[in-house]
Amino acid sequence: MDAFLVALLNGLVYGLLVFMVSAGLTLVFGMMGVLNFAHASFYMLGAYAAFLSGRYVGFWGGLVVATLAVGLVGLFSERLLLRKVRSFGHTQELLLTYGLFFMIEEVVKLLFGPTPVAYRVPDELRFTAFTIGNSQFPFFRLLMGATALVMFFGTFAALRFTRIGLIVRAAVERPQMVSALGHNVPIVFSGLFAVGSALAGLAGAVAGMYYPTSPAMAHELGSIVFVVVVIGGLGSLNGALAASLLIGVMTSFAVGIESTFGDLFRALGLSGLALPGLEAVQFSSIAGVLPYALMLFVLLWRPAGFAGNRA
């Protein structure tokens, strides 16, 4: 039972982290139809920015600097690059963000090398928040989850209760109409793009301490985020939240299972079916496969995703 609770909490924290990154991506897409391939790169940049600035301004200052810096990078990418290719259509925008994704990884490799940097949880934060039975739940994980929750409610409140939020929500539904009503959609979009990037940066700054901070982290999280968006439906925050949490919890539980495929085959009475070497593979080692398998299943069962049929 304790193990169950711990796995559940870990899964929720990871899911919330994934959601932090997915939220910006899905809002930007909903509003402008741009799938930002580089979104997860902003997450990686957040970790590096916090690592770099943390030496001078301390841990908490690092979080703030990372958020702001990545927000600025996002703003510049949108205004200086993305806007240039807008008239060529969505394909060119997609390619541009893909190029950005590639370039950010290469620049980070140039500056920091291809291997992880030593971005660690500061000592004063290395304590146990609470214990469940024999398992200790570190404060730091709690902080990650809390950041994501604050961000979620913050975004939700901003979208729900502010004028800008109203415009953004309307623009996600009908960009031309909002533009026709006299709102400056390009400015709102730049702002949204910057905020989305900043949130990804914050997520990276928090997560980079726990997971290795390396150039590969963009690619690793990026593909999970895509799965979330395919499952949840682009433009839908609720769908993204549901999919993120589902994937987080599912992965977390799979990691805890100690059986192998051989056990499964035997349990199903299929021990004759020996695929070479698959018998000895543990379920936990393929936990990373689950999100993608889930995506294929959802595509079969509900091609338009959890929420909505915006294509």
Binding site: F29, L35, H90, L94, G222, S223, F226, V227, V229, V230, L234, G277, L278, V281, S285, I286, G288, V289, P291, Y292, A293, M295, L296, L299, P303, A311
Partner: peptide, 24 residues
């Protein structure tokens, strides 16, 4: 699916295959 969904699904399928192949 079409458009960007197609793009994202191709990424995800690649990750799926890679995860399996690298452990097998």
């Amino acid at each position: 699916r079409t458009g960007v969904y197609f793009a994202m699904i191709t990424v995800a399928i690649t990750e799926l295959v890679r995860a399996i192949v690298q452990r097998w």
